[in-house]
Design a protein around this nucleic acid. Sequence first.
DNA 1: AGTCGAAAGGAAATCGATTGCCTAGACGCT
DNA 2: AGCGTCTAGGCAATCGATTTCCTTTCGACT
Lengths: 364, 364
Amino acid sequence: MLACQERVTVALSGPEGNFQVRSGNWGGTLSNIERAVTISQVAALAGVSTGTASKALNGRGALRPETRLRVQQAAEQLGFVANAAARSLQTGRTYTVGMITTDSIGRFSIPLLIGAEDALGAGQMSVFLCDARDDPIREQYYLRTLLSRKVDGIIVTGRRTQARAPIGVGLPVPVVYAFISSADPRDCSVVPDEADGARRAIQHLLAVGRRRIAHVTGPEHHHSATVRARAAAESLAAEGLRPAAPTLYGEWNEAWGRQAAGILLSTGAEVDAVFCGSDQIARGLVEALQAAGRTVPQDVAVVGFDNWDVMVDGCRPALTSVDMDLEGIGRSAAELLLSAINGEPVHGQRARPCRLVPRASTAV
Amino acid sequence: MLACQERVTVALSGPEGNFQVRSGNWGGTLSNIERAVTISQVAALAGVSTGTASKALNGRGALRPETRLRVQQAAEQLGFVANAAARSLQTGRTYTVGMITTDSIGRFSIPLLIGAEDALGAGQMSVFLCDARDDPIREQYYLRTLLSRKVDGIIVTGRRTQARAPIGVGLPVPVVYAFISSADPRDCSVVPDEADGARRAIQHLLAVGRRRIAHVTGPEHHHSATVRARAAAESLAAEGLRPAAPTLYGEWNEAWGRQAAGILLSTGAEVDAVFCGSDQIARGLVEALQAAGRTVPQDVAVVGFDNWDVMVDGCRPALTSVDMDLEGIGRSAAELLLSAINGEPVHGQRARPCRLVPRASTAV
DNA sequence: AGTCGAAAGGAAATCGATTGCCTAGACGCT
DNA sequence: AGCGTCTAGGCAATCGATTTCCTTTCGACT
């Protein structure tokens, strides 16, 4: 239809210039105006003072209902939207929070952001997303920016290798750490209970009758990897079992999953289930097992971690996985931030339970 | 130096309460202050008026170098950061742009955002990310929010099914559409030249000696799918070839890729290469071909689209793919927006070329 | 020596909205 | 009739930074 028409693309910038020159599309639809409407224009139209107009629009003061209505109609008619800068200059509130992600924005940050937006959107607040790209300089730069913008609060997030140093001390605004936790235990952090997730994975495998369970995960220096590994081992021990093989530490990707499958097969460990530290590892492992003639789940059941749709659905059979409920963490962090903003700070770390999502890779 | 002395921090408001109560973490690191420092405090410390302080810090006015320095030192000492609200109230600039994504933030929006941030960050501007979740109501709500915050400009992005209706007409700020295009040809849009991408894919396959080429892609009602399909067919025609099979339209996922492989095999079409509309389709197809005993690339070469790291690396063999350079599009959109903000609006649609990234799935 | 001009910096208006304080009526009560 | 009270809404200060205009001071030139 549309497709590539001429694509004329058009001059620009003669000796005219300003971007307010937007002839082109008029055609009078609705809503928006050329030059910003101020509250005094609204007040004038309604025949009141600006102060009264402000009260009318904000539901404050003692006004006759008809006056209030008149102002509201005037505002509507003019398409008035309050200048946020002016308002926040006066009130000290910006109805904005900053979100600093330390790793590059990615698979983990997005659900967190969405969850946070959900919780904040209800309170009419907006989110400033800052991607520090794992660079402390950028991070401090963004922090300054956020402070200069007088955000009402800050959410710090990032990939979870270790607890991180607090982003600042004595900041003039409350801070909540989401997904990652602050090294200072008095700071407010919301994290997934990864041990819980690992336990659920193991218990699920036990429930479907597996007894010889191995664990393949990411780098040993990742907090997540070690925590999950330990919890998995403890879960097995609680049932009087031992791991079917030593925990295999590697990378968080499919290639390592494949390689780990090879290791498990070659060592001759009799394994009837593998709990993997990520869905990618799990998928690589599944493919390599199948290539070696094993069937999943009959010969080997596999559980992943993250519940990343692309991986769990792409894998054949579909992958059972542990969901950390990142949106829930984001939402929860935002709620704690709101409560801090409203004068009820919360300290300490909160761990939220995970959820096991069973699929074909562990079906009996 | 300055740093945190005791910072007792101060009761206030009732049986505890306001969030400014942050006793807790002292311990004197650097930077940040309890209560916002204003320019008058800086001015007082430097022994000048606020006006002079402002000039000193912004490099304006006629000041003795030593005065300027004194003010700068005072600012540094107090950790002064200008209040953005006050500044923008005065200057009319916020050094902020809004980015509205119409689909849920995802795989495509992130690189666009990163590219835009790159281009804007250099100009010290920040990005407000708004996820409209494909809901026109949310979209208009966010638009109002952005306008009330007096952003300097807006970037609209989203998944590309069709050109979209302009987000508003006669807006008081410039708008650039990125990845998706506006239906109004006078609006400024930056899009990938998908036809170019398809041509590159076909030409690459031809270059590695393939002649019987099929195309498997997404839904027919997706602009991307039809544009790529047509360009692919035209590329073949230009060499006097016909497609080895009719274009197969389906979903943008692995399952469809597998299914399509089955279709191609069962119809007995002799195919020595498949160009796929997405990396996911390609991966599903590759796996199904292999399961049916074909080898990639010897029997069948496969090219994907998107160059999505997770897919192209996860696939065995690694997947040759077409990269739309989303970051570049984001950067380019931001640059055009900046130029509009600076009074040189650009109209019309710009298409940016794609890039073919060869990998093992088409290696000779 | 007087005038002119440049240099340096201060005073005050300004941006737009909010809000505390005050006043003018209206009304009720004794 | 006079006084108090309540209500509706206006006035003006305020938030913090920028910027225009103006004053002062000093030096140079005729």
